[in-house]
Design a protein around this nucleic acid. Structure first.
Length: 669
RNA sequence: GGGCGCGUAGCUCAAACGGAUAGAGCAUCGGAUUUCUAAUCCGACGGUUGCAGGUUCGAUUCCUGCCGCGCCUACCA
């Protein structure tokens, strides 16, 4: 609703400026006044116009207010301060629209969107860093779906890379295990935990003697080759660990539609098709000297082209590819003819946009308990399958350390002339999760003096240094369960467990979303395990409180929100929202009206943290309201109904906002 | 060296494209309705927004230069 009115206001102001001053502003800036008393929207327009019209801002503001005329849904405009124009809505009309959950039509862009997230190496347990990725990615998917977009969720599986090879080396060379023994282990619980430790041991083993690295090279080669015992073991390990990852993420209600694997990118020769295009398009060139002699290379993203001389001919000459300085080159095909991961990534991204001319085979892989089917790539797939890839826009949720590699892929697309696709390729970049030195010490890691003084220490799978995702979820559930047990002893064990799980998931997902993307999360158990203050459980609790009002009053909050709220008459809305002390109540209604506005902002800025902030603010306002206004004992029936409608609307919007973050609300807390 | 990012209250973080008195949470201290459960609420304390310039009516935000920190910069992925 808030979004809708903003659009209307912007459009009206735009028309007015065109009509009155013959001005066409590229953007009408609309802000939110610091207090609701000032109105709902603020336009700093007059400041901007002052230069153009050569008049004082305040004068311009007064003129605009006097001449702009009525706007549907708006009460009036006022001049404030040095020249702000504040717009005031008709509170009762807006409230009635919110109460009836009116959904003004908005244009939904067509075209499918592909979101890739998680993409965890299938060689060890997922850790907190992967959780941040998955929660950000999954929330972004939900944001897009909320906005009405058609989304495919993909999780790229690097099942033939060094990391998987390392664990294979661990089983075969360190533990001397047979395939049957590994199969036995793979059937056990949390095989990914076993691999976590083994992977760390293998890394140590390499360091002990560099000769040991030969085992890695041989293993990797065998895996890439395929059709041999080593490759079969690698497949067994990666598939088992992948299953575990899906289970872990499913605990947080994170699901995928399709799992493209590197093994199929290799076996279905995606690279060959891409290679031809890249050579023909002049994106790749063959280096004949220097350290990259014998490699196919391209210009690394972010490196500048040589200075141009100004004339077209000289420019054409100077961008001649062989002039790319050695340090600006990115090797795509090694001198031994094998392709690196950026090359495979380019091929994969050509496929995403439907530009490769080849497709995966598909087979069913994982059926979620809720019936949702997840597919996986395969050399010879099933004949009937959904259509993946060939999309209009993509978002890759990948941490900022891979920014350069991502940009190189984008540049490759651009170099091939696929500018539109390159423009719709978004690297959804975020910072890593690290551990505070205190947290690391709590986990029993030996720290160097240097590390002890750092603000945070990077998680390292290679060193086995980090907090495993399942461990953190388990800890959260235990912690939440204690609280639930203490408060609701009368409930059954399974009910209490279910509630504790919802709270744990809410706490975790909110924790991963409350930080903006560029902020490193210095992980600390105290903060992650907190259920008070700016947390998921705080927001959930606000909903539970609202629900309790209806329960105690013998009403169904769902039905009340739908059926009874419209019965609060326009007169009643007007009476209760324009009182002496109605601002505080109106603030709550206004906040409740902003969900779809916030969703739009989150999508436009690829920043889900705004939604987390919004949910918290709404919950905060509600708790204040809850404390100030005993509803069921309110003697004035008209006012009681209005207060109930307030609670119903906030409850509905809070559930909605939390839902977009993948957070559900327990029946009681 | 080059590229990207960060530096805001004791701590962890906000501040939408440059706007009105820079806000939350935690911690500390003090308080709250025998009421729809206190996983709540209210109050206090807490700031030269790293430093120095510049642009602007207006800068935490944009530009330049310093200082400090992190990440990337492999014929690894």
């Amino acid at each position: 609703m808030y979004r809708h009115l903003e659009h209307r206001l912007a459009q009206h102001v735009r028309d007015f400026l065109r009509r009155t001053y013959n001005l066409d502003l590229p953007r009408i800036v609309i802000e939110q006044p610091p207090k609701v008393e000032f109105g709902e929207y603020a336009l700093p327009l007059a400041f901007e116009l002052a230069k153009k019209l050569r008049k004082a801002p305040r004068k311009i503001a007064e003129e605009v207010v006097a001449k702009i005329g009525p706007i549907e849904g708006f009460e009036k405009m006022e001049v404030a301060g040095a020249g702000y124009i504040n717009a005031r809505v008709k509170r009762e009309e807006v409230a009635a629209a919110i109460a009836s959950d009116a959904k003004p039509k908005s244009e939904i862009p067509s075209g499918k969107i592909l979101v890739e997230h998680s993409s965890i190496n299938p060689n060890k347990a997922a850790h907190i860093g992967h959780l941040r990725n998955a929660v950000l990615g999954d929330t972004f998917v939900r944001l897009l779906q909320f906005a009405g977009r058609d989304v495919d969720v993909q999780n790229y599986i690097d099942n033939t890379g060094v990391q998987v090879a390392d664990v294979v080396v661990g089983f075969l060379h360190l533990e001397k295990k047979s395939r049957a023994e590994i199969e036995q282990l793979a059937r056990g619980l949390r095989f990914d935990y076993y691999c976590w430790d083994l992977y760390a041991r293998v890394s140590q083993w390499y360091e002990q003697d560099k000769q040991n690295l030969q085992a890695r090279a041989q293993t990797l080669h065998a895996i890439e080759e395929g059709n041999n015992e080593t490759a079969a073991i690698a497949d067994l390990i990666s598939t088992t660990v992948l299953h575990r990852h899906l289970e872990t993420m499913d605990r947080l209600d994170i699901e995928y539609d399709f799992l493209p694997r590197e093994s199929e990118i290799l076996r279905l020769h995606f690279w060959d098709a891409a290679f031809t295009k890249l050579k023909d398009g002049g994106v790749l060139f063959y280096e004949t000297e220097g350290k990259n002699k014998g490699c196919w290379v391209m210009r690394r993203a972010g490196t500048s082209k040589p200075e141009t001389t100004g004339t077209a001919e000289a420019d054409a000459e100077s961008v001649e590819q062989s002039q790319v300085a050695e340090e600006d080159q990115k090797v795509i095909v090694r001198s031994n003819g094998t392709v690196g991961y950026v090359g495979k990534d380019i091929a994969y991204h050509l496929w995403k946009f439907g530009l490769l001319g080849r497709d995966f085979g598909y087979r069913k892989f994982y059926l979620y308990p809720n019936g949702h089917q997840c597919w996986i790539s395969s050399t010879n797939g099933e004949p009937d399958h959904p259509h993946f890839g060939d999309v209009a826009e993509i978002y890759n949720v990948i941490d900022t350390r891979q920014a350069e590699a991502q940009n190189t892929v984008i540049e490759a697309l651009r170099g091939l002339g696929y500018h539109q696709q390159a423009d719709h390729y978004t690297h959804f970049s975020y910072e890593m999760v690290a551990l505070t030195p205190r947290c690391a010490a709590e986990l029993g890691y030996q720290l160097s003096e240097e590390d002890k003084n750092k603000a945070y220490i990077e998680v390292s799978g290679r060193k086995g240094f980090g907090v495993k995702a399942d461990d953190l979820i388990d800890t959260l559930i235990v912690s939440a369960k204690k609280e639930v047990d203490a408060r609701h002893a009368q409930l059954s064990e399974s009910e209490r467990s279910a509630i504790a799980t919802q709270i744990a998931v809410g706490a975790l997902r909110y924790f991963m979303l409350k930080y903006t993307k560029p902020s490193v999360i210095a992980f600390d158990f105290n903060e992650a395990l907190s259920f008070e203050g700016e947390t998921g459980p705080y927001c959930q609790y606000a909903v539970v409180r609202a629900t309790n009002i209806f329960r105690k009053g013998g009403m169904n909050p769902e039905r009340f929100g739908r059926d009874v709220a419209p019965d609060v008459s326009m007169n009643d809305f007007e009476k209760h929202l324009n009182d002496e002390d109605a601002n505080e109540l109106w603030e709550l209604w206004l906040a409740a009206s902003k969900t779809s506005y916030m969703v739009d902002q989150c999508i436009a800025t690829t920043e889900p943290a705004y939604l987390a902030k919004h949910a918290f603010q709404l919950a905060q306002l509600f708790n204040y309201f809850y404390h100030r206004h005993p509803i069921l004992t309110e003697p004035d029936e008209s006012r009681r109904k209005f207060l109930l409608a307030t609670a119903a609307v906030v409850r509905r919007e809070l559930i909605r906002a939390l839902g977009v973050m993948g957070i559900t609300v327990p029946p009681v807390m």
